[in-house]
Design a protein around this nucleic acid. Structure first.
Lengths: 102, 102
DNA sequence: TAAATTAATCGTATATTTGCGATGAACGAA
DNA sequence: TTCGTTCATCGCAAATATACGATTAATTTA
């Protein structure tokens, strides 16, 4: 990727929505989000049992969702409990809905 | 990317939704889709005027959206007119809505 | 037929994504 | 303190994504 022309001026919401969409752009991350939207929370260990990928890979996907602001993790030694991000999930949800119903 | 473990069995809808989300995971493509959801159609040339990227780059983004099934192009020589994909956009829309309202 | 217009595709360079195993950090239990 | 458990992070390899300019293909106009 390179940027030679003047910086693009996307709207803030367009960039936000694109970032949320990008974070959802993998089946594993959709799967994780579906679990978190259908039940309250889950532990990393639950996911490593359901999803046949290496623990480190699942951890990376969780990090991607966390970095995107879609989920949040709470340390419950020795486990980590993940939930939807209380602050951002409603924002993401609204951005998608507005996008789908213009 | 490599796959050494047994093939994953995601649900068909999870894979579909992830693919749609992935296609939307770039601000330019969000911008294009917003134009197409707010007005009927547009020509490639309209986009190259609005978006300060090389024509070839915009064409690539259009291809990504087309490959994902979100838009469709109609040749209107010497231009090409793009619209939402009549068949798939409603499907994508429903998948997102069901995902957002579980 | 030749020239102009429009948009897709090719070729290339760089950055990011995705996967893995190995290692490290934090904590409770023995 | 030492040992296990749990999860994040590191380091690597391969694949994809993103951008560009140059070229090609298709069609209309002169």
């Amino acid at each position: 990727m390179s940027r030679t022309l003047a910086e693009l001026e996307y709207s803030v919401d367009e960039v936000k929505l694109a970032n949320f969409a990008k974070a959802l752009g993998h089946p594993v991350r959709i799967q994780i989000m579906k679990i978190l939207t259908s039940q309250a929370c889950c532990y990393t260990g639950d996911l490593t049992e359901i999803i046949p990928l290496a623990q480190s890979t699942i951890s990376q996907h969780l990090k991607a969702l966390k970095d995107a602001g879609l989920i949040q993790g709470e340390i419950m030694p020795p486990k980590v409990k993940y939930c939807l991000n209380k602050e951002n999930w409603p924002i993401a949800s609204k951005l998608f809905k507005d996008f789908l119903n213009p």
